[in-house]
Amino acid sequence: MKDLIIDKDDFWVMHDKVKPFLISDVEEHPEHEHIVTPSEAEELLEADYCIQCGACHYSCPVTEINEQFIGPAAFVKAYRFEADVRDDAHIERLDVVNEEIQGVWDCVKCMECAEVCPKDINPIEKITKLHNMIFDEGIAKNNIATRHAVYFKDSIAKHGQLNEAGLVIYSEKGYGMYKHLKVGMKMIAKGKAHINPLIVPKSEKLDEIAKLVKISSTSKF
């Protein structure tokens, strides 16, 4: 059966990268146990059930193309400790998954990891949680990926719809636009984009949408 065992060295390299252990400032002579309540344990969202089989890591199309990408299994592991109330690392570990190219921002959202997991752990759910934690902890950098996520809220509040051209311009911060000029011109010529990116179709009952965005927002950037 030996020929059916795959070489998972790259998997373990990524696993180790996210500091896959509890980082806790425990007193030398603690006077009581650090009790984790059942509801606090539920916060792990069963991330601790992962058996490190590697199925998600090797079905992820990004790990195949981008050798630096940490991958869904290690992201689940990072979340498992980030969500643990006893863990004190927080930003130290989040910084690792917040890096461009290796971190969560390069996920293509293909849902392969959620589909393949034999333990129904749903890695993409944890990847989303890590994104949320990065914003909550205030360590989101002002880069193309964060601007891309944040722009949706601004555009929805303003138009109801996503301003598609506006998303590219805002995310690329203007000067990155040169990469998209050729395709953009073709799209304008074919009637796929308006020459004026300020012209955006608007949803009806826009005041209602704007009000909901205002009263339901839970994040800041």
């Binding site: 989303t128 914003f135 949706f152």
Partner: peptide, 22 residues
């Protein structure tokens, strides 16, 4: 015609609750 953008799998990375409400 009243519908808004669904957040396209990105809004929930920033604000999950807002995405649910919309």
């Amino acid at each position: 015609e009243e519908a808004s953008c669904c957040g396209a799998s990105h809004l929930q990375d920033y604000d999950d609750f807002l995405s649910l409400v919309l």
